[in-house]
Write a protein that binds this DNA or RNA. Structure first.
Length: 152
DNA sequence: CAGGTGACCTCTG
DNA sequence: GCAGAGGCCACCT
């Protein structure tokens, strides 16, 4: 049932399937390793997602920063360069991190819905980028947020 | 071939 | 919240 596009893509090339999913994450939203794996037709293979992302070339256009750990946790060690880089990129998109994690209830992404699903799977580039380019409506207002933000 | 590692996850206590 | 156990699997020693 439903689309087997993901399964086929996964069977054909898991790496590619994962990258397609990651690239479909809209600006201002985040997903998790586990969810990306699921959507790529690779259940329980979150680890592979991390591995694929770790092998992205420098300067890639793949929005790797929109992928976080379970519960919105930044996967990189607190205080690491990569950790800061990811938070900076997210902040630039209007996604705040508090105590090393993203609020998934507010910024979490569940994936494309209904017809849009097929659209995203059949077409390479997600249309969200255009929408974002026109006008970025911040998914959140603001708050105390990272006023404290530890040493990480 | 065996063992350790890792941008991970979920379930149990 | 944290720790342990079991899963998953590509890659390196």
């Amino acid at each position: 049932m439903s689309s087997r596009t993901d399964d086929e893509a996964a069977a054909d090339d898991p790496r590619r399937a994962i990258l397609l999913v990651v690239e479909s994450i809209p600006r201002g939203r985040v997903s998790t390793y586990g969810l990306v794996a699921d959507r790529a037709g690779l259940p329980r293979r979150a680890r592979l997602v991390g591995r694929v992302l770790s092998q992205l070339p420098a300067g890639t256009t793949v929005p790797w920063h929109r992928v976080v750990g379970a519960g919105g946790r930044i996967a990189f060690p607190a205080g690491s360069r990569a950790n800061r880089e990811q938070r900076a990129r997210l902040a630039r998109e209007g996604v705040p991190t508090l105590r090393g994690r993203v609020d998934m209830d507010r910024n979490g992404w569940h994936g494309p819905a209904g017809d849009l699903d097929r659209l995203l799977w059949l077409a390479e580039p997600p249309p969200v980028t255009r929408r974002a380019a026109r006008r970025v409506t911040r998914p959140y207002d603001r708050g105390p947020a990272d006023a404290k933000r530890r040493s990480g």
